[in-house]
Design a protein around this nucleic acid. Sequence first.
DNA 1: ATCACTGTTTTGAATGACTCAAAACAAGGC
DNA 2: GCCTTGTTTTGAGTCATTCAAAACAGTGAT
Lengths: 165, 165
Amino acid sequence: MTSPATVAAHAAAPHPADAATRLREAGLRVTDPRRAVVDALGERPHASADELFEIVARSLPGTSLQSVYNALGDFVDAGLARRIEPAGRPGLFELRVDDNHHHLICRSCGAVADVDCVVGHAPCLTPSDSHGFAVDTAEVTFWGLCGDCAASGSTSEPAQQEGRA
Amino acid sequence: MTSPATVAAHAAAPHPADAATRLREAGLRVTDPRRAVVDALGERPHASADELFEIVARSLPGTSLQSVYNALGDFVDAGLARRIEPAGRPGLFELRVDDNHHHLICRSCGAVADVDCVVGHAPCLTPSDSHGFAVDTAEVTFWGLCGDCAASGSTSEPAQQEGRA
DNA sequence: ATCACTGTTTTGAATGACTCAAAACAAGGC
DNA sequence: GCCTTGTTTTGAGTCATTCAAAACAGTGAT
């Protein structure tokens, strides 16, 4: 975590670079588990460590859950991934880090969808009274029911389901 | 008490009623632990179950942490309290439930302050693309440094500190 | 290509914040 | 004051995550 070269100027690849390149650009060593985690994140945005672990297990059996946690922690530190923590749910990870977007979460099934922030940059909203705080981020989470759950009566199980548009 | 000056059209007492009354009004049985928890919540908004347990222990030793959790859960179910869950921190409870206000949280010491409303571009409060979701709530959390932490160099310990209202 | 240096992975255990369950107990209506 | 039903206690269990030490593997220099 104490990498001398702090934030490598990740010159924001114009298109999804492959895992190894992304890792190198973020100043991280390229290892099999890390590559697999990056790929898993690409395959499934908004996945929990556990879900990523399962995906990784398919392409790289023998990888430990701890390694997935390590990789994710390193990614977040290196600015390669972002972690969101919806109330009452395990943390979720995503690769979209360069824009200030928000999330839409289904109360019933937990599906998550991205919402673009028109403002784009960090504090897109400002409190009416900031109580002396120096605010740097406004985190916005929209709660509701996804189309499927609204259709099926909202009483569904918290089955894991990705909010595909 | 107070002069019944204007017609209080709303059922809820316009000013902080005492614990027992609040409990009864919420349809809950009045017990010592519950009364103590309501009082603790009044004394310290945005406290965790653990903190409330410590406060309760002063006025009512022998109360178990589990009872505090039970009480808080019942309060939330009864609409007497609200629970917020800032990323990376234990859940916090507050008695302000009748308005949809937001929160300002100090990254350094964890102080929390209430924000009545928010100003900014409308699209930030109503998703630009709701991906088929039926949205019912927009939760906004502002992250930053409170005045004290900003002054003392931001590198302070996560010492528990309440953002005085 | 090989080495050493240092970061990474694995294994196993530990933690914090809750939740579940059963038995003892008490609030509130009759 | 009794009875029913909800509440509190005690104790154990869970989940997501973190800590730590030893084995291991990238990477830049040789």
